Amino acid sequence: MAGADKIEVVLVRHGETGTYDHDAGLTDRGEHQAYTRGTALARALAGRDRIVLRHAPTERARETAEALRAGLTDASGPPVAGTPQPDPAFSNFLIRCGETITEPTGAHALYQKIEQADAAADWITDFTRYLERQRLGGDPVGYWLRQPLPSFEPPVAVVLRFGRAIGRLIARGDPTTATVVATHSGCLRAVVAAACGEDPGEPDNGETVNVVAAPGQSAAMVHYRNRADRWFLPRAMPPWFGGETRSSVTTADGR
């Protein structure tokens, strides 16, 4: 995908999991999906000296990273440096459930413990709306991308979080090493939408998004399916995430 002088970060959606009611691991099919992706990456990343494996801090992402490693090793791909490590920068989108911050499966486990007749928390309303799309066979992640849900980490915050983490990897300027990250579909969709201007829909389990840039560049190329789009990597949080007061921000008319 990338030239020898380019930094490459490969985002991989986790393999199939048995349930989203709690943080479960992969099914046999999910392990096979991730393993097969690992063998494919062995060919795609053959020019690299080594691969660093990272994963979102969920069980399905961890098991995906382990299966990716097995596929890379069995296919004689570039050696994996150490064991796959969790990286909170590549977490799934988060939900504020009262005093607890967790991702959707953690929120679902908390939700199941609550008697709905007694539930008055704001996050319950948000999560009920999200869950309804899932129960009806709809697109709950697409709903999150389109609908403001105050208890949910917004898509733009996920894009900023991923972009800054990828920017740090690129700034290190080591084109001999590729980084492969097992993460989640909503994050992949948000990143691709930021690059191309529209939601691409749900990626398959094990599908990849490749982010490629030269050291020192402010823009990367995002490769997904049959398209490539330029993405300006965020370097700092915008003021509306920084807590500045209105008086510290100048509006378009100078007020």
Rank of each mutant, 00 (worst) to 15 (best):
D5A: 11
I7A: 02
E8H: 03
E8F: 04
V9S: 00
V12W: 00
R13T: 07
R13Y: 01
H14P: 02
H14K: 03
H22N: 06
D23R: 00
A24N: 00
G25D: 00
T27R: 00
H32D: 08
R37W: 02
T39W: 01
L41Q: 06
L41T: 10
A44R: 14
A46V: 15
A46T: 15
G47A: 11
G47Q: 14
R50Y: 11
V52D: 06
R54L: 13
R54K: 09
A56G: 13
P57Q: 06
T58Q: 01
A61R: 00
E63T: 10
E66G: 04
E66N: 03
A67E: 06
L68C: 09
T73H: 00
G77I: 13
G77R: 03
V80N: 05
G82A: 10
Q85N: 06
Q85T: 14
D87R: 04
F90L: 04
N92F: 09
G98F: 12
G98A: 11
T100L: 08
T100F: 03
I101Q: 12
G106R: 01
A117N: 13
A121Q: 10
F127P: 01
Y130Q: 00
Y130P: 00
L131I: 12
R133K: 11
R133F: 14
P140V: 15
G142A: 06
G142Q: 09
R146N: 15
R146C: 12
R146L: 13
P150H: 10
S151N: 10
E153G: 08
P154M: 08
A157F: 03
V158W: 01
V158P: 02
V158R: 01
V159S: 04
V159G: 07
L160V: 09
A165Y: 10
L169V: 15
R172C: 03
G173S: 13
T176S: 13
V180L: 05
H184F: 05
H184Y: 01
V191C: 05
A193N: 12
G197P: 13
E198D: 14
D199C: 11
P203E: 01
P203D: 03
N205Y: 14
E207H: 01
T208M: 05
V211L: 02
V212Y: 03
A214M: 05
P215G: 07
M221W: 13
M221V: 14
V222P: 02
H223T: 07
H223I: 07
R227E: 13
F232A: 11
P234I: 04
A236C: 08
M237R: 04
W240L: 11
F241R: 04
F241H: 12
R246L: 09
V249S: 05
V249D: 07
A252M: 08
D253L: 10
R255A: 14
